[in-house]
Every structure is written in C-alpha cells, then in structure tokens.
Simulated assay, not measured.
Amino acid sequence: MPADTVPDHSAALVAQANLPTSPDQLLARLTELGLATRTTDHVPVFTVEESQQVSRDMSGGHIKNLFLRNKREEMWLVTVEENRRVDLKKLGEKLTGETGSNAKLSFGSADRLMTYLGVIPGAVTPFAVINDKGRKVKMVLDRHLLDCDPVNAHPLVNFKTTAISPGDLLAFLEAEGHKPQLVDFD
C-alpha cells in the first residue's frame, strides 16, 4: 500500500495512551483473579479485516465487538465470533423482548464508548467492562465462543491481543459484575 494511502491513526494512539485503565492494569487484574492469559503485540488494527491480517498465526476464536444502545438509553456490549453476521433488528427484539422502535438498536457514539467502557473505536473488547463501574452496559456473548479456546481479545488497546480461555473470560466478566447473556447467533 502506498504511504499516501495509509490512514493516519496517530490521534487514536494518543487517545489510547490516556485510558482510565491501562493494559498493564487489566493484565494485573486478570492475574489477581488467577486467570491465565498470553498477550501479543502487533500493529494497530481498527477493523475486522485489519485484525485478520495480524491474527493469522494466533490460534483460537477471534471476535468483533458491537457497542449498542436503544432509544431508552440502555446499552449493550455484544461480543461475537469475527465472521458472524448480526441482524440488529432481531438482536434488539431478543435483548429487549420487544418489537418496534423500543427494540431498535444503534451503535453507541465514540464519546459514549469512552464514557462507559473507557476505550476508543477499534479497541472495543469484553475486557472493557472493567471500566463500567456503574454497571450501565449489559454484556452479551456469542454462545459459540465458549467452544473456542482460546478467545482472542484486545486488552483495552488495539495494538495488542490477549488470549484467554472461554472459562476464564466468563470468570473475569462475572468478577467485574457483568455476567454475560449468552446468545445463540445461529
């Protein structure tokens, strides 16, 4: 790719330097909980496609994360296998138990993402619930990920990937007060 077509992500990298919880603090919390992880450094990735380029040699399940909200200001962090198609209309009905406008989900803004989960777009991760001290965001996990070992997720920044067993991921989410709703996306 010619240098003049490479996106400038310097602002995003600066934003990640000032997060409420650092990757090192997150990894220390995982260690404190007795959870085993392995973290790999790589170039910053902002899309699933970019992530697939750096994760070719990493075994296990790779994810994408959707930070969603509805008109009633309810918020969800939805973590699914990276190639999974998500129908937001059907998901909204499943999560809210309603049809119509109350079930309509949309993506949360970058400001809302930073306010509630303390990460920037491109670095969204189930580990971000560590920053949701008010328990405002509901965690939703693709049931299929429980069959992937390990699960690979960003440790609050998009230039690292942390591998964790599905059981340990569940243990972390529960320890942070975010027991996930397991959803079958098939």
Rank of each mutant, 00 (worst) to 15 (best):
M1S: 15
P2D: 07
D4Q: 15
T5H: 12
P7L: 14
S10C: 12
S10Q: 11
T21E: 02
L26Q: 06
L26E: 09
L30F: 14
L30D: 03
T31Y: 00
T39N: 05
D41Q: 14
H42D: 12
V45I: 12
V48P: 14
S55I: 04
M58D: 06
S59L: 08
G60V: 11
G61R: 06
H62G: 06
H62C: 07
I63Y: 12
L66R: 02
N70M: 03
E74C: 02
L77R: 02
V78G: 02
T79R: 04
E81K: 15
E82M: 10
V86F: 09
V86Y: 13
K89L: 04
L91M: 05
E93S: 10
G97D: 03
E98T: 12
S101G: 01
F107D: 07
S109Q: 09
M114T: 01
M114V: 03
I120M: 12
P121T: 03
P121L: 06
A123P: 08
V124I: 12
F127G: 04
F127D: 01
N131Q: 11
G134Y: 10
K138R: 08
V140E: 03
D142S: 07
H144P: 06
L145W: 15
D147M: 12
C148H: 12
D149A: 13
V151T: 07
L156A: 11
N158C: 01
T161Y: 08
S165F: 10
G167M: 04
G167N: 10
D168R: 06
A171Q: 09
P180F: 06
D184Q: 02
F185L: 15
D186T: 04
